[in-house]
Nucleic acid binder design. Structure first.
Lengths: 184, 184
DNA sequence: GTCTATACCAAGATAGAC
DNA sequence: GTCTATCTTGGTATAGAC
């Protein structure tokens, strides 16, 4: 989270655990495997939560708002994971076959995650709740608003639960308004 | 753009120039200096352009739309620079005093850049053009939508000028709608 | 101004004692 | 399961010929 993948050396990681390399390598075969694990855990956690919200009550825009809110709250709550997952997405590449397979799995999981948002946007469009828009681009816009949190949120500064709720509400409102058909 | 800062070795850079290390080090004292230059050039270019749009005609939301459009078009046109600037923002740290000073300059320039958007959002709020919102968060939301392009746009795939214009319009519309006071 | 050759070091990974 | 010691490599940077 603080240093990025490349700058975070195994020695540094071990230091923060109050240990040495040996311990790290007892649990992980390689540095890449650690990163892959972080991605998998984060995606699994967030996918489960968003799937829940997606199945909730209300029309498509109401559910999209709930998904956005939840997404923001999860990112803030698990900020270290979220930030790593966002920032190092493009750097995923496996050396061994096992790792390449893991990378493919992660890419698929990411696509599936984004697709939950895209599908809900599409539903909103078809229900006539939105202005005229391109579904793919609108989905990127929504996720951009939400994911960009990983670039500016500082958990040590605004970590209070109420503050997080307020941020989540504000950003959810922004994306819903960005899509919604103007009244009248 | 393709590999990120750490993975892009000087050897690789030289290769793509059809040269060797020697040439690179003839023009740059260190790898860090190359990155600092990319940041400075990008910020200078974009700041000049957005300042223009900011001084344009129309109310605050109209100008914000123009700024957003221009921001998107610039990011796509200078995509390699834009992507590097976004992705490596947090990795800027200077070893020498000269570099630390450059980093400070870049941070200030970034703040000033963001402030142009924040000031225009504030103007829109004060003119009563927006719904009720937190200016700082709304500005982050706007820039998130726009900057997230650096994570998904593929210039080799959708590089046609009309396509770029359409993307810029779509995203600009999204952010304006995200802020605007609902009619009625 | 550009190259080759090389110094030098940080960091990933392993071996083996305890 | 954890450590220390060590191997190995890739990558930044420099020296100096052309």
């Amino acid at each position: 989270m603080e240093l990025g993948y490349d700058r975070a050396s195994i020695d540094e990681i071990a230091d923060r655990m109050g240990a040495t390399k040996g311990r790290v390598y007892h649990y992980y075969r390689s540095k890449t495997d650690i990163l892959l694990d972080v991605h998998q855990d984060t995606l699994a956690l967030m996918t489960a939560a968003i799937k829940e919200e997606m199945a909730g009550p209300g029309d498509a825009l109401t559910r999209l708002r709930a998904m956005a809110r939840r997404h923001v709250l999860l990112m803030m709550e698990h900020f270290a994971y979220a930030r790593v997952t966002m920032v190092s997405t493009t750097q995923l590449d496996g050396g061994t076959e096992r790792q390449r397979q893991a990378v493919r799995g992660i890419r698929d999981a990411r696509r599936a995650y984004e697709h939950m948002f895209a599908a809900t946007v599409e539903e909103a469009v078809e229900a006539g709740l939105t202005r005229e828009l391109d579904i793919a681009v609108a989905t990127k816009a929504v996720l951009g608003t939400l994911n960009w949190i990983s670039m500016w949120y500082d958990p040590s500064r605004s970590g209070a639960a109420e503050r997080r709720e307020a941020l989540a509400d504000e950003l959810a409102e922004f994306v819903v308004c960005g899509l919604r058909r103007p009244a009248g």
